[in-house]
């Protein structure tokens, strides 16, 4: 009697790009970065200068006139939205059992997140700190100099 040997497993096929690894890495790198970015943001806005009372249109406009704070806020926006989207994607993968519904939900999630990232970036870089028809009292101090020149 001959012994029947099970057919050895054929190795699993490796996909060309493995996004799971990069997703995992992204979460680990963006997490600590976000802690630094967000807490510095909160500290600068609420604890330095006049604290919470200083926050108005002029304060935000003043910050966004400086490329440093523009890039700071854009970095926060991108890192936080992608971080959150990846997290939500995990929740969707956990709780949806139908593949079609899963694809639809993850697709919607990325579209919404992509739109928010685009809109946010557009606002930060095309922001006009001195809208011509506004009450000058509400605008940052440097607007007067620009208006008179």
């Amino acid at each position: 009697m001959s012994v029947q040997i099970e057919i050895p497993n054929s190795p699993r096929k490796q996909r060309v790009t493995n996004w799971e690894k990069y997703g995992w890495l992204y979460m680990r790198i963006s997490g600590p970065l976000l802690i630094v970015l967000i807490f510095t943001h909160v500290f600068v806005n609420l604890f330095t200068g006049e604290g919470i009372k200083q926050i108005d249109f002029a304060f935000v406009a003043g910050k966004w006139a400086d490329p440093f704070w523009q890039w700071w806020d854009v970095a926060m926006l991108w890192l936080a939205l992608i971080h959150g989207t990846l997290g939500m994607r995990t929740v969707i993968n956990d709780y949806t059992e139908k593949p079609k519904l899963r694809t639809a939900l993850v697709g919607t999630l990325w579209s919404v997140s992509g739109a928010l990232i685009l809109l946010g970036t557009l606002v930060v870089f095309t922001f006009d700190p001195c809208p011509p028809t506004s009450n000058p009292d509400l605008l940052p101090s440097f607007c007067e100099a620009i208006a008179s020149s």
Partner: peptide, 12 residues
């Protein structure tokens, strides 16, 4: 390591 570096591998 290659086998476990899969969509359904350790990153899950």
């Amino acid at each position: 390591l290659d086998i476990l570096n899969d969509k359904e591998g350790v990153w899950r």
